[in-house]
């Protein structure tokens, strides 16, 4: 799916009305099948951007086109069809805890399923093979018939990502896919997502806090800071100076005094080091 965004302004529904909009004049053009990572400090507007692209948030100003169409000018039925071609994976995987993994996975196919078929799906899941194959991509195939609440946080997150592989979507919007994964799993998960999106020709937009992972897996990197695009470059041109500028003042800006080394604050994922190491190329 092709994305064109111009002069985008948006604010999440829960934001205080007097707060500055989370996105201020964002412009972006993504070709069908392209893969890009959005990086930037916490509160930069990464999730808001994904929500606007997922038609989960109406922009306050600016122009949004998905495959040339403005989703907010579509009739309700057409908008729903459009949503069926999008897949938004929130940071916390939205899996019902009391559902089995297989049912939760196959729910990704609901947009292309009749009501009767989706009812039958609850009692007797069909296409177990596809669900198994999607899980196997994330080394979770033995969890197919387990209940979601029996999984660890990292396993849940990977099931949430495996859902994307089953959805009929042409645009994957993945929010922080690695927040609960260890480095090895994170590398594998991100590699799988990129490979599978490429194999399907689906456009992939992911927000990431792990700068090294973003640089290693994505050909194009968008740096977002304070609701505006700081840079939009091929990964090879993103250097330490740009990253330092992107994350500058992060720790000092939020707190009057920077936390002492070794204090609990440092472990917080919000506090990204001023110059993230550029490794794993």
């Amino acid at each position: 799916m092709r994305i064109t965004v111009e002069g985008l302004e948006a604010r999440p529904p829960a934001a205080r009305p007097e707060a500055a909009p989370a996105l201020r004049g964002v412009g972006l053009r993504v070709e069908a099948g392209e893969q890009l990572a959005v990086i930037g400090p916490s509160g930069a507007g990464k999730t808001t951007l994904l929500h606007v692209l997922a038609c989960a948030l109406v922009p306050r100003a600016g122009d949004l086109r998905l495959d040339g169409a403005d989703p907010w000018r579509l009739a309700p039925r057409a908008l729903r069809t459009m949503r069926g071609r999008l897949f938004l994976a929130p940071q916390t995987p939205p899996l019902p805890p009391r559902q089995r993994v297989v049912t939760a996975l196959l729910a990704a196919r609901l947009p292309s399923m009749s009501l009767l078929a989706s009812m039958a799906q609850l009692v007797h899941p069909t296409d177990l093979g596809a669900a198994f194959a999607a899980l196997a991509q994330f080394d979770l195939e033995e969890k197919l018939f387990d209940r979601v609440d029996r999984l660890s946080g990292g396993e849940r997150q990977r099931v949430g990502l495996a859902r994307a592989l089953l959805s009929p979507a042409r645009l994957w919007l993945i929010d922080e896919p690695l927040s609960a994964l260890d480095p090895a799993r994170a590398r594998q998960a991100l590699g799988t997502l990129c490979d599978q999106a490429r194999a399907r020709g689906a456009t992939l937009v992911a927000t990431l806090h792990q700068v090294d992972m973003a640089l290693a897996h994505f050909p194009r990197i968008v740096g977002l800071r304070e609701g505006a695009i700081a840079f939009d470059l091929p990964a090879s041109e993103v250097d330490a100076a740009r990253l330092e500028a992107l994350y500058a003042g992060e720790v000092a800006g939020h707190d009057a005094s920077p936390p002492a080394p070794g204090s609990a604050h440092v472990a917080d994922e919000d506090l990204v080091p001023a110059a993230p190491p550029v490794v794993c190329r």
Binding site: A54, L88, T103, A107, L122, S167
Partner: peptide
């Protein structure tokens, strides 16, 4: 958000919990 219908979302998203 991913394009499912209301009854589908009820059956697969809300009913389990």
């Amino acid at each position: 958000r991913n394009g499912a219908g209301r009854v589908q979302a009820f059956l697969h998203g809300l009913l389990p919990q």
